[in-house]
C-alpha cells in the first residue's frame, strides 16, 4: 500500500483512531472525494460571535433546564454533581434564547468586554 493511500485510510477508522482534523497538503495524498469528519467548532470558535454573554445566577436557578432545552446550539450542559447548568463559552453564540426563556429570569446577558 502506498503512502498516499495509508494517509486517507485513517478516515475509515472509528472516532477514537481517526484524525480530529484532516490536513491535506497536496493533490497526491487526497482521497477520491471530499469526506468531512464531525468536529466541534466546524465554523471555528463561534463564541467570538457574541456581543452579549449569558451568565447564570445559580442562587436563583430552580434547575428547570428550560435553557438546556431551548439552547439552539447545544452549548448548555448539566453538571451531574451539582445539577446546575454550565455554558460552553467557546461556542455559545450569545443569541439570548436562554435568557428570554428562563422562567426565573436568572440568566443575564452581559456585554462582552473585548
Amino acid at each position: 500500500m502506498t503512502e498516499e493511500k495509508k494517509n486517507w485510510e485513517l478516515l475509515r477508522m472509528n472516532r477514537e483512531k481517526r484524525p480530529k482534523v484532516q490536513n491535506w497538503t497536496s493533490y497526491w495524498d487526497l482521497p477520491y472525494g471530499p469526506v468531512s469528519l464531525p468536529v466541534k467548532g466546524s465554523a471555528g470558535r463561534t463564541g467570538d460571535w457574541r456581543t452579549f454573554r449569558p451568565v447564570v445566577d445559580n442562587e436563583k436557578c430552580i434547575k428547570c433546564y428550560f435553557c438546556y432545552m431551548y439552547c439552539p446550539e447545544g452549548t448548555i450542559s448539566v453538571n451531574d454533581e451539582t445539577g446546575f447548568v454550565e455554558i460552553d463559552y467557546n461556542y455559545c453564540k450569545g443569541c439570548g434564547v436562554c435568557a428570554t426563556n428562563c422562567p426565573k429570569e436568572c440568566i443575564d446577558m452581559e456585554k462582552e468586554n473585548k
Binding site: 466541534k40 471555528g44 461556542y91 455559545c92 450569545g94
Partner: peptide, 18 residues
C-alpha cells in the same frame, strides 16, 4: 449536532437538528 457550527444566532434549524 456539534456546537460551533455556522448556523445564525437563534437558528430554528439548529434546534430542530438537535
Amino acid at each position: 449536532f456539534l456546537p460551533g457550527n455556522s448556523t445564525c444566532q437563534g437558528c430554528g434549524l439548529d434546534m430542530a437538528f438537535r
